[in-house]
Nucleic acid binder design. Structure first.
Length: 578
DNA sequence: CTAGGGTTAG
């Protein structure tokens, strides 16, 4: 028996599956031989190609046992097409074969990987009927299904209902919250895990800190991120590739590129492609294009082949520093290096050309694409058209956006502002009307600032902060000083995500301005003020904050979706064309 | 040892 199993193992490892399979069939052993199950099992887990063979073998089996089904479902769940596992599970049930707890675990994993929350719910209720829900591992997978699909309240409920929890359960929820747009929740859950450490006897492990750190990255929560890093060191957690990578990303997104590079260069384990990409992106975000390009060149020396993310990162670097020629060159060479440009690369290069005012070339690039342009690409074009006041181009872009059914308020606002700049008030009114009649999606803009280790959140036009009175007083002061210094900053305000009626107060309403004002109040002179914003910073805010930095002689750093804007002495670190 | 949790992106 063990000899036979060893033989099967050898066959699978040497890709002699077909021959062995043929041998079993020829000798008539396939339908009866218990080693068939072993063969299917090993085959299903060997590689993505072999799963197909395993599935075919299952199809030829006259009386499959549960383990035959389980092996193939498990293999498919781990394959690039996890939803196939769900299909097979349905086949199994149709053939009236009763699944066991293992089957359900595997198919739930497939739901988690395939973000299939509806199917997950159905299997959830089936598990309840079969009485499988007492199974800790199955419950964790179920929790992960909901967490990954963003149904966080269900995930939370499963978590709360558990009388006893293990580390993986905490991890599944923390990571789910971190990835599901609730980074604050993730951090507080991590804190709770640590405070209950004595009672539960559970310590955060490498996986937990990955979740916590990725939440810190999103929030730009440097104080908290550094605490987690300290925890890693004090607990002697393994700084493996994945942990190191997420630490690099955290430092970078919290505004400490030097610290990120320090971790990158001192990594004890072998750097992975992700490490390189993360670091290049870190330099790109901080406007250090030369360093990003250098690092990109160094990959070659270390025999690491750049992938699509590497190219995107380095394109981003060129973009943020205004290195138009370098960017275009890189974009043109990537296909030759065997990396197929995807929609994000096109987006980057269109943005690059658009910001340089080369709108026609940008449009040419779009029409040369082999994939269909998406909404973001036309939004980029619209943004560039606004920057250069090109109405013809703006109409092309907004026409496409209309066709594609974009409901983002920013698109309408941008177009109306382009008309407003040319004083075409009829067109402005028309766009504003269209905005009212449709169900336009308002994307809330919000900003964070880390003061004393607490992340203070501001939304546009926010009066909810405990110190709002002081903040608005500060904003009045800023306004006054701007006039006093003779700067013209209050003209042509873009009314992102706020109504017409707020036009008068537009100056005070952007969330990042509120956060900056709070920073001025609550942090000592000589320190830098760092704000994180969820949307792209607009031209007016950019100009405004540049002025504030100059007037108050402070360093102000604003991170928007993809980059850091460092304002100092009336200058900005990154090249923009507003 | 065998089923669950893991990083980069316009």
């Amino acid at each position: 028996m063990t000899n036979l199993e060893a033989l099967i193992k050898k066959c699978v490892s040497q890709s002699h599956i077909k021959q062995f399979h043929a041998h079993l069939v020829a000798t008539g052993k396939f339908q009866f031989c218990s080693s068939r199950t072993k063969l299917i099992e090993l085959c299903a887990l060997a590689s993505d190609k072999d799963v197909v063979i395993a599935r075919a073998m299952l199809g030829q089996t006259r009386w499959p046992v549960t383990n035959d089904w389980n092996a193939v479902i498990r293999g498919l769940a781990n394959s690039p097409e996890p939803t196939e596992a769900i299909t097979l599970y349905c086949t199994m049930k149709r053939k009236l074969h009763r699944p066991d707890a293992l089957t359900c675990s595997f198919v739930l994993k497939a739901c988690a990987r395939g973000l299939a929350s509806i199917e997950g719910m159905q299997i959830h209720s089936q598990c309840a009927r079969y009485g499988f829900l007492g199974d800790m591992l199955l419950r964790t997978t179920l929790l992960d299904v909901y967490a990954k699909a963003g149904v966080l309240d269900y995930a939370q409920r499963l978590f709360d209902e558990m009388p006893v929890r293990d580390v993986a359960m905490w991890n599944a929820l923390i990571i789910g919250q971190a990835q599901g747009g609730e980074p604050n929740e993730a951090i507080s859950l991590f804190r709770r895990m640590r405070s209950e450490e004595m009672r539960t006897r559970l310590k955060p492990n490498e996986v937990t800190v990955i979740g916590a750190l990725s939440a810190c990255s999103q929030l730009g929560a440097f104080t908290e991120g550094e605490k987690v890093f300290e925890f890693i060191r004090s607990e002697n957690l393994d700084l493996n590739i994945q942990v190191s990578n997420v630490v690099i990303d955290m430092f970078a997104k919290c505004g400490r590129v030097e610290r990120a590079y320090e971790v990158f260069s001192k990594m004890r384990c072998q750097k992975s492609l992700v490490s390189w990409n993360t670091m290049i992106m870190a330099f790109a975000m901080h406007g250090c294009a030369i360093k990003a390009l250098e690092l990109f060149g160094k990959m070659d020396e270390e025999d690491i082949f750049p992938d699509e993310v590497s190219y995107l990162s380095v394109l981003c670097a060129c973009n943020h520093a205004g290195l138009v020629e370098d960017g275009v060159r890189l974009f043109n060479t990537m296909a030759k290096k065997g990396v197929k440009p995807n929609i994000k690369h096109y987006g980057s290069v269109v943005d690059l050309l658009g910001r340089a005012g080369r709108l026609h070339e940008a449009l040419e690039i779009i029409s040369s694409m082999h994939t269909d342009p998406d909404i973001v690409l036309w939004q980029t074009m619209l943004g560039a058209s606004k920057t250069y006041g090109n109405i013809e181009m703006a109409e092309i872009a907004s026409g496409k956006l209309k066709e594609m059914g974009s409901k983002a308020c920013g698109d309408f606002v941008l177009l109306s502002n382009i008309y407003a700049a040319r004083e075409r008030w009829d067109d402005v009114g028309r766009v504003r009307e269209a905005m009212k009649s449709k169900d336009v999606r308002k994307i809330p803009g919000f900003s964070y600032i880390d003061v004393g280790g607490i992340m203070h959140k501001f939304v546009n036009g926010d009066y909810n902060h405990p110190s709002w009175e002081e903040i608005y007083r500060k904003l009045d002061e800023i306004r006054f000083k701007i006039r006093e210094y003779g700067y013209v900053a209050e003209t042509n305000f873009v009314l992102h995500d706020i109504g017409e009626e707020d036009k008068e107060n537009a100056l005070c309403h952007h969330s990042e301005k509120l956060a900056v004002a709070f920073g001025l109040i609550s942090t000592p002179e000589g320190t830098s003020i760092q704000v994180i914003k969820n949307l792209r910073i607009c031209g007016d805010c950019h100009a405004m904050i540049k002025l504030i930095a100059k007037i108050y002689n402070r360093e102000i750093i604003v991170r928007d979706r993809s980059r850091f804007h460092k304002f100092k002495d009336g200058e900005c670190s990154c090249r923009d064309y507003w």
